[in-house]
């Protein structure tokens, strides 16, 4: 080792040829992966352009449509419910939409707990049972809330009850999947710690896994409550109760001022829920 400070760059570069000979693969850009990436992006672009062509997309239609949209926005101003009675009616419908979202989300969350555990591979080790539960959950999840609403309307009749059932049906499977994945990703060491102290299988799950997944599930449920407020508006359109029905009616009869008022009501509600759930989520997860 020399005593005088060596120039770092020169010292390292001097070993360049030696390094290139010893590790040639580290000096080549990986063109195969790179070509793959470029090909994939190019392919996706091609499909997109072909799709636009197939759907007869034309810039002029968009352009003229924009003027029409501007007209409509102009007609929406200022937002107004029309009469005071109407406003109260809308407020009542909004409350109904909120109850649909709340009841649906809550029912889904409760129902998903046992299924989430059953669908987790580290809880239910039986392979066949695992696949069976996972696939059934996938099937339920693949049917959209709107379709569930149409089905439940035929079963229990028009109204908010069908709406709550629709949200519960589609969301419970989604939660169960999220939960089972959280359980599978949970740290194994606390479970081992509980088991090593003489805890049984159930107590190991109760104290080793539940405290880990509870914050994840709780924050998901809060997020879904917000998202379900919007979903509940949409399923109202097909007759599952709530503010959606009034919204679709207002659009159909071209009452643009009422339409914008209704949209505004939903917007404010969702914003309030978002702010509240953000605080609740922070309280549940705890600040680090």
């Amino acid at each position: 080792m020399s005593d005088a400070p060596a120039d770092l760059r020169a010292a390292f570069l001097a070993r360049g040829a030696e390094m290139e000979a010893a590790y040639p693969q580290m000096f080549r850009a990986d063109w195969r992966t790179r070509a793959g990436t470029i090909g994939l992006i190019g392919g996706a672009l091609l499909v997109y352009v072909l799709g636009l062509y197939d759907l007869e997309f034309s810039p002029s239609v968009i352009f003229h449509g924009m003027w029409r949209l501007a007209d409509i926005v102009g007609l929406m101003l200022p937002p107004s419910p029309g009469t005071w009675d109407r406003f109260l009616l809308y407020l009542d419908a909004l409350g109904q939409t909120l109850s649909i979202a709340l009841l649906g989300t809550l029912a889904a969350a409760l129902l998903s707990v046992p299924f989430g555990f059953l669908a987790a591979r580290n809880v239910v080790a039986n392979g066949i049972l695992h696949v069976l539960i996972r696939r059934s959950l996938d099937t339920i999840r693949s049917i959209d809330t709107l379709i569930w609403a149409l089905i439940w309307i035929n079963v229990v009749g028009l109204g908010p009850f069908a709406g709550a059932l629709a949200i519960a049906s589609s969301d419970f499977a989604a939660y169960a999947k999220l939960m089972s994945e959280a359980i599978e990703a949970a740290d194994r060491r606390p479970v081992e710690g509980v088991a090593a102290s003489g805890g049984g299988r159930l107590t190991a799950i109760r104290f080793g896994i539940v405290p880990q997944v509870l914050p994840i599930l709780a924050s998901q449920v809060l997020y879904y409550f917000e998202s379900n407020t919007r979903s509940a508006t949409i399923i109202g359109v097909v007759g599952a109760g709530g503010i959606g029905l009034h919204l679709s009616e207002a659009i159909r009869v071209l009452e643009w001022q009422e339409t914008s008022f209704l949209i505004l009501m939903v917007l404010v509600t969702v914003a309030i829920i978002d702010a509240l759930s953000g605080r609740l989520r922070g309280a549940i997860i705890g600040r680090r």
């Binding site: 760059r9 570069l13 360049g16 390094m19 290139e20 000096f27």
Partner: peptide, 12 residues
């Protein structure tokens, strides 16, 4: 190439 050479030499 030089950047790679410097990095590999540092690792060495």
């Amino acid at each position: 190439r030089d950047d790679r050479a410097i990095a590999m030499a540092a690792l060495a």
